[in-house]
Design a protein around this nucleic acid. Structure first.
Lengths: 336, 336
DNA sequence: CTGAAAGCGCTAACAA
DNA sequence: TTGTTAGCGCTTTCAG
């Protein structure tokens, strides 16, 4: 395979000139550049990245850390689309894109540490769930740019993160239900251990308050995200003296159980009862009836993560910030 | 950051000795090795991968190519678990793991080409769907080891691939239905454009033949994988003079429609009617009733891909082979 | 605008 | 068993 010397020789110039051409230095006249570029093409030359990385001390590579609790499944079903958003942005920058699981150990250190110290990565994107203060400190010490997927919680340091605008998403959903004539909206699946869930809950409360609607505590169901919980708690809701006529499901799987319960009670969806959930499109469409959802654009989330990371990598200095991706309502068959 | 010279100096040896220690050369006495290792630890030394890659002309990195048709979703819902299987194996080898989308172009060449020519990758795992003979040829020319995810089709070259044993999976499913007293089993969702689907179909036919069961052509429904198709064609099946009493769904989404149709006909599942599908666990469990499925271990598939790739990387020479991952039945509520 | 030359951190003959 | 030394292919001062 041709190297920079071969190109230099063929072009009758020095390797410096070729190097400057590769890096598009302004000191080389366009004409010379064109000629050298042509020769590179003829020789089928591609710069050796390892050599470049060694001299510049940069890996031109960024890393996505994933969180795998058990061996069989990743935690976040949306992760794939986030990945794709990142991937696209990264390759546009002519960087490459590593994926690693934080739990993996390399020579008794975490992969992350290994990747950084061996100069394999210049920046890291990782879920807020793994950003404890120890990790933040270590990242800071190594001066490695990073971006959190999801607004971090319990973290005193100021960091850069990207999240879905869960609060606004809930607001849009509740407003839409009200506008379509639903009056008594329950919130199914409150879970104060999850920040995204709290934000959705805030949005729900927010709208009721601005619309001067009395908040009915028995409409607010605390449980985690399983279809059985959805089913059982919806049954309870429907047995209430003043039963609700709509539900905002805080998370996806609840909605399958809820729909089942509503149908068993002889209520018809969406005429008697409305439901909005958060979920993946594919799953929402599989249900009968298909589920109206708050749409979360995970591809965009990935793109933003990558963008904020490169802001840090390129500017070397950049202010920490939080970015919220707006969430829109995707109306399907569970709402009027 | 400490480099190999610093370690050598601190240990009072040459860099070669340190290098040999790093690479665990047998010529260094255990004692010396231990001493040097200790010093590396003290200095918090990690070898610079770029330097190593430059000298050895190896990137210690492998690549997974993904197929993204539209920007919003990856094609294969299982891909994530495959990825994880690969990731785990790769880091065990102290390699790192790049992900890239074949559609991405780098300086007017494909990412794959770019990754290879710039020495960023030593091996590639990619879906059979992108393995046209041009790609194979180019991979072969660059002498880059590769493994196909999925048995390739329309390919004259012999290559290494890993796939789910779809045929055997279907056989297990059909046998299980027969053993549980279902007599007339329909095959819903035949699609001859997809090899995995053909294999499932072969398995279905196989069992019927060995059990001397007459094949009823009207039980074999050709359609692609949507819930509406599942619903409509199941309706048709149920209106047949001698209607089936069980369905093998060739693909996941069909089953949601099929179940709906069966229930609407007043048949109860699983006592009157049985159903087995192929699908992701999570989705199968979301359904009412939860769906019995042929279980496909995508994590294992990823592991095998990585293993076969490293066989080639390490042995430099290795025979092409196809590996089938066995598929087992996961009984849920749609079968007795 | 261009070239010579040093060097990034490591490995691997070759020599001892 | 260990050290010396010459690169790997590129970038980047510094000089011209």
């Amino acid at each position: 395979m041709a190297n920079i010397k071969d190109v230099a020789k063929a072009a009758g110039v020095s390797t410096s000139t070729v190097s400057r051409t590769i890096n598009n230095s302004s000191s080389i006249p366009a004409e010379t550049k064109a000629r050298i570029t042509e020769i590179m093409k003829q020789l089928n030359y591609t710069p050796n990245q390892n050599a470049k990385s060694l001299t510049t001390n940069k890996s031109y590579t960024i890393t996505l850390i994933v969180d795998v609790d058990d061996e069989k499944s990743f935690q976040n079903p949306f992760f794939y689309e986030i990945m794709h958003g990142i991937e696209k942005y990264v390759y546009n920058k002519e960087y490459s894109f590593i994926v690693a699981n934080l739990k993996t150990m390399m020579k008794k250190q975490s992969v992350l540490d290994w990747l950084i110290r061996s100069k394999r990565t210049e920046g890291v994107i990782l879920p807020s769930s793994m950003l404890d203060s120890k990790t933040v400190e270590s990242l800071r010490k190594d001066k490695i740019p990073f971006v959190s997927i999801g607004e971090p919680i319990h973290l005193k340091d100021s960091i850069t993160w990207v999240d879905i605008d869960n609060k606004r998403g809930a607001e849009v959903a509740v407003y839409s239900l009200l506008e379509n004539g639903y009056k008594n909206i329950a919130y199914l699946g409150y879970d104060n251990t999850k920040l995204f869930n709290q934000r959705r809950y805030e949005g729900y409360l927010n709208v009721l308050e601005s619309e001067k609607i009395k908040i009915n505590p028995s409409y607010i169901i605390e449980c985690n995200n399983t279809k059985d919980n959805g089913y059982n708690h919806t049954k309870t809701l429907l047995n209430l003296g003043n039963r609700p006529d709509a539900i905002l499901c805080a998370d996806g799987e609840l909605s399958f159980g809820a729909i089942k319960a509503i149908q068993e009670n002889g209520l018809s969806i969406p005429s008697d009862f409305g439901l909005i959930s958060y979920d993946e499109t594919k799953i929402a469409e599989l249900s009968y009836p298909s589920i109206s959802t708050v749409n979360v654009d995970m591809f965009e989330m990935g793109t933003q993560c990558a963008k904020l990371l490169f802001d840090q990598i390129e500017n070397h200095q950049s202010i920490n910030q939080g970015v919220l991706i707006s969430a829109s309502l995707n109306k399907r068959e569970t709402t009027k």
